[in-house]
Nucleic acid binder design. Structure first.
Lengths: 152, 152
DNA sequence: GTGGAAATCATACTTTTGGATGAGAGGGAA
DNA sequence: TTCCCTCTCATCCAAAAGTATGATTTCCAC
């Protein structure tokens, strides 16, 4: 249940907002604020929240789209196509593969942790396991090996 | 999209709760229903809009660095070609480029030093300068950047 | 020959990685 | 329910990487 926290986070946030909503409404009826101002505030706040939620939804589960191989005149272009068989044989779990991709993009452990909403020790555990499976001892080696195996 | 449903479910639940809350309040403040419902609708709509916007922001962000495949005579050229112009603009000297290649192969500083018959501090100096020119701060970032620029 | 640029190496320091090990929480199967 | 597996997080330690600064050598141009 890796998303449990995420969902909980969203939920808490929404709950807080609901309370805020009530509060603002209260102020509205006491202080007689301008309706348009009130509406604007609500709309803005919820838009911002929505943007944040939307980005996090996508970020948390963007599975890597396997690019379709480009074939022209029966010639398959080497478009960094993923070798599914090698990838399968590596037996990487979702987290490991996810982290591998971030490593390949030059992310530090700290950045990976922030991106995936995980603690740094967790990242280290995953990277260690990843290195075992790839039979390497460092992130640059991991990237190199992954490219050799055409899984990136 | 397995989490999407979850989040959606949770969101819906909260929305329902919010509505119930509004209704409950209505019992005690007749005439307030109009604004309450209105507010809920506004909040919901703008949250949805926000989510949509957020997801689209990320989606558009993702499709940046896809280099256009080179097509000559209807044959897609292998994209592993080195972009000589970029390489030239980087202004790397021989050592730096040499070291960049070794880094990309997963070599440690020690291994690079042994390979090139240099001292480790020398390697560090070169890598530092290399990072400056590539505008990065680590070897994995350097490799990533170099691939972006097609100089590897 | 002198100035200056480039390459080499050093020293000292901080940050990041990697390795080893254990523990706790949650989900799924018997 | 209980057991097991996966994912998560923690701590401690060692190694590697990165930063900053300066010294030296070489070599080329003036």
């Amino acid at each position: 249940m890796k998303n449990f926290k995420l969902v909980l986070l969203f939920g808490s946030l929404l709950a807080v907002l609901a309370v805020l909503l009530q509060f603002f409404e209260y102020k509205y009826f006491i202080g007689r604020l301008d309706t348009s101002v009130y509406t604007s505030v609500v709309a803005t706040v919820f838009t911002v929240v929505g943007v944040w939620v939307g980005m996090n939804i996508l970020k948390s589960e963007k599975e890597v789209p396997t690019p379709a191989p480009i074939i022209v005149n029966n010639i398959v272009a080497p478009t960094n196509e993923i070798n599914e068989e090698n990838l399968k044989n590596l037996n990487l779990n979702d987290r490991e593969y996810e982290i591998l991709q971030l490593i390949a993009k030059g992310y530090s452990n700290k950045e990976i942790a922030q991106t995936l909403f995980l603690a740094i020790p967790t990242i280290k555990t995953h990277t260690s396991n990843l290195y075992s499976k790839l039979e390497v001892r460092s992130r640059t080696q991991a990237v190199h090996r992954a490219r050799e195996l055409e899984v990136l």
